[in-house]
Amino acid sequence: MLGQKERHIKKRMEGRVIINRLMMVLFGVATAIGLIFLVLLFYRVLTQGIGYLNWDYLSNFPAPYPEEAGIYAGLIGSIMLMVIVAIFSVMVGVGSAIYLEEYAPKNRMTEFIRINIQNLAGVPSIVFGLLGLTFFVYLFSFGYTLIAGGLTMALLILPVIIVAAQEAVRSVPAEMKEASYGMGATKWQTISRVILPAAVPGILTGTIIALSRAIGETAPLIIVGAAAAIYTLPESLLAKYTVMPIQIYNWTSRPAEEWQFVAGAGIIVLLVVLLLMNSIAVWIRNKYQHRL
């Protein structure tokens, strides 16, 4: 009687262990699927685009024939756009972060600003495009220009920069602030001479990561009128411009197969730029991590 029961339990136990094993394999396979698609994506892009990637491609403007088309206008346009985005979003973002961390009183207004930033981070990028279209393109009459695109993108990544800068400012040890105040430093002296210098690596890392999001964004720039056919580099803030993702989108949506190769080559360039930016961010993080 007893023996039978024991045998029964043992049998069930074996079953449970086997199911556990099976599920573990299943979970592992699920994880692998994500990774496989990452590899497939890279492989596909490389094999499609590498044939078109050469010096001419990097130095040519868009062209009606796939063999002559190049990413030059997009690459330079993207870089110029990022400079505008960085200047505006870092200034406003770091300012906001310092305000929220060091000056803001604990009241409803501050809480409202915090919640507002959190919600802005979840707003689809295309909505920022519509905002830019109304304000920058039409109300401010910038038209479809570099500055309209730059300001739109700056607002888009502003929440990310604020949050990163807030974290960087918060991670400056309280002892260091105390040391400064203890010397008779004022609040702004403490912020500008102690807190900000110590927070710079964190702010830089966050900024680069935010910019690497912005440099791949397409939808809002379509709305605020980044053009595909651009045959000169923008010479002022009020000039027409293009960026890499716009070029890629344009080429991808053409039916002839060669254009897919051209688009693939553009994606390789875009991904290399992204890789560079992220490597710099990781490098900065590793270099300064142990300091604080």
Binding site: E175, E178, S180, Y181, A185
Partner: peptide
Amino acid sequence: YLRTKVGMVFQKPNPFPKSVYDNVAYGPRI
């Protein structure tokens, strides 16, 4: 003003992540 007259040394050494020189010159500079 009070704190330039009444200085403080803390429990944990808390130098700024700057050079020795800049640490000591911090007070006079501000």
